[in-house]
Amino acid sequence: MPTLTLSHLTKRYPTGDLALDDVSLEVPEGQVMALIGPSGAGKSTLIRCVNRLVEPTSGSVLVGDRNVTEMGSGKLRRMRRRMGMIFQEYALVERLTVMENVLSGRLGYVGFWASWFRRFPREDISTAFTLLERVGLAGMEDKRADALSGGQRQRVGIARALIQNPDLLLVDEPTASLDPKTSRQIMRLIAELCTERGLTAVVNIHDVPLARLFAERVVGLQAGGVVYDGPPNGLTPDALTQIYGEEDWNATTGKGDAEGSAPEDGP
């Protein structure tokens, strides 16, 4: 059974814009799928329809065999605990510490007053320390999120998503506000973590070379519809033109692969 099944998913915003037009997709377990396409193609909307930060207009979203679109608010909350999300501008709570941001990934499992007094279970705290070390932020737990650099903040965002111990990872433009080198490090970290944990992931990404490097499958969205679905090496200039429009693709892509495989200088 695929981990994520979208069928005939459509989203029309109240303004009349059709962001998603009858999208059907299946993401098998353990697959890292990149979602590429121009701005406004509906990538963010698609990812947000999965955990219903955006309500789909019609169609259905199945995670495993459970229909997310039909859930009431209590069931939806429990379902969201199984879906980790990583955001474009990190979306950390800036005035809270790194530790509080990471532990906020466990809020779905902790009662209101326990979370108010920051009384998280022992195992959550030790998982948080393990994760911080894994993402390269050991010893940073007491820093405030707004004291970190962009790359460090996104690492906190990754730890917050992973502490949920999710079945499915939703990643929305994780590198859009990072420099090229940090972008590659962050994408590599996400890809590694997915492999380590056998995570299924949907990754929105602007950067075609990065998508080629780290994804097993690429889906191209154009004006709310799927126009490409295949392996990364099938992204020929023709396919890219179909997704993004006319451009001299040979001259402007391909270099990215060489750059991306440069040795990493650590976090």
Binding site: N51, L53, R77, R78, M79, R80, R81, M83, M85, F87, Q88, E89, Y90, A91, L92, V93, E94, S104, G105, R106, L107, G108, Y109, S115, G157, R160, Q164, L170
Partner: peptide
């Protein structure tokens, strides 16, 4: 975004 992020954890 931070509000969305906290919502997305199932809080």
């Amino acid at each position: 975004p931070p509000v969305e992020a906290v919502t997305a954890t199932g809080a």
